[in-house]
Simulated scan of single mutants.
Amino acid sequence: MGTRQYYVYILASRIGGTLYIGVTNDLIRRVSEHRPKIAESFTKRHDVTRLVYFEVFEEIEQAIHREKRLKKWPRAWKISLIEKDNPNWIDLYPEIAGPGG
């Protein structure tokens, strides 16, 4: 049995826009659920569909702890975290989802 992976991710509405932080065990599936904006939710109300940052963890407890910490961070720190690896706030979803994603 392979090692399970867990993800902490940040979605954004646009560069410098509204941010959403979540945790999942299936990043591609979870982001694909946010994108169509079908369900009434925070991500639909604020048009938050662009995957701009994610981290990978081997233990769910680590991922949940990181998610909670990130949610408490000042907005400026979150923006710095995103821009360290993704300065143009490029949507990472097409890259991880592959063709047809």
Score class of each variant (00 low, 15 high):
G101D: 04
Y9N: 07
I21H: 11
E58W: 13
E55K: 06
N86I: 01
F57W: 03
S80N: 15
H46Y: 14
H34S: 02
V23E: 02
I21A: 11
H65G: 15
R35S: 02
A12L: 08
H46W: 14
Y20I: 01
Q62W: 05
W89S: 01
L92T: 03
S41W: 05
E67S: 08
A39P: 09
I10L: 06
D47W: 09
I64H: 09
G22P: 01
L11T: 07
W73L: 13
H34Q: 02
Q62H: 08
L92F: 00
P99L: 09
R35D: 00
N88D: 12
I28M: 09
D85F: 13
P99K: 13
Y93A: 04
H46R: 15
W77I: 14
I90V: 08
K68V: 08
Y53Q: 07
S80Q: 15
L11S: 07
E40Q: 15
K78M: 12
D85S: 14
W77T: 14
G22I: 00
R45V: 07
K44H: 02
V56M: 03
I60L: 13
R4N: 11
S13D: 06
K72V: 10
I38N: 10
W89L: 03
E67N: 09
E40D: 15
K71G: 09
V48C: 07
E61P: 03
G100S: 05
D85Y: 13
H34M: 04
